[in-house]
């Protein structure tokens, strides 16, 4: 049972950081959505806000870790250029995909969207974590603010989901070894 360093980093980037972000999203959204004075007592709001702060900052940190590890550790292996005249492209996923017209769109659409849009996730998640920390319990009474933060939060999830889903498929079709 062995795993290469590259495979381990890919798992850390996609399965641990990425999956943790996507899984934690549901809890954060439920917390934001149900943060209403008519649904929760004052004590309940305080308790929920503490959990939300911890959860949202954790999500933001995980999102930053995901994009940083993806861009600066895993992506260079993905885009590495094969030596002149190389015929075996299995260690050069970008070129492996582009060499096959039936797979090229996985790079041209999937990877090129994933590598850029994924960076919007930590930015949006950080904004939401800051706003919840700043307002604290008062956020329960601010309908417009809570609604806007939920939209930011959902966009953060959606961009991470695009990156995560394409990443999973691309690593299946042209794995980093």
């Amino acid at each position: 049972m062995t795993i290469s360093v590259r495979e381990a980093w890919t798992v850390l980037h996609g399965m641990l950081f990425g999956a943790a972000f996507l899984l934690a999203f549901a809890g954060g959204l439920a917390g934001l959505y149900s943060l209403r004075p008519e649904w929760v007592t004052g004590e309940g709001v305080k308790e929920r806000i503490f959990r939300l702060k911890v959860g949202l900052w954790s999500i933001a940190v995980i999102a930053w870790a995901t994009v940083i590890s993806g861009t600066f550790i895993v992506y260079p292996w993905y885009r590495a250029k094969p030596p002149e005249g190389a015929t075996d492209l299995t260690e050069y996923p970008r070129y492996l995909l582009l060499a096959d017209p039936s797979k090229a769109e996985w790079h041209k659409l999937g990877m090129e969207w994933k590598e850029h849009v994924g960076w919007l996730a930590p930015i949006a998640a950080t904004v939401v974590a800051f706003a919840v920390t700043y307002y604290g319990s008062a956020l329960a009474k601010k309908v417009g603010e809570r609604r806007t933060l939920m939209i930011f939060y959902i966009i953060s999830f959606a961009t991470a989901a695009v990156a995560g889903v394409f990443g999973a498929f691309i690593n299946k079709i042209a794995p980093i070894r």
Binding site: V127, E145, T148
Partner: peptide, 15 residues
Amino acid sequence: EELPNGPVVAALIAG
């Protein structure tokens, strides 16, 4: 009297 929304607006627009 409540918390001013300026800091949150700043974070949202910066995002």
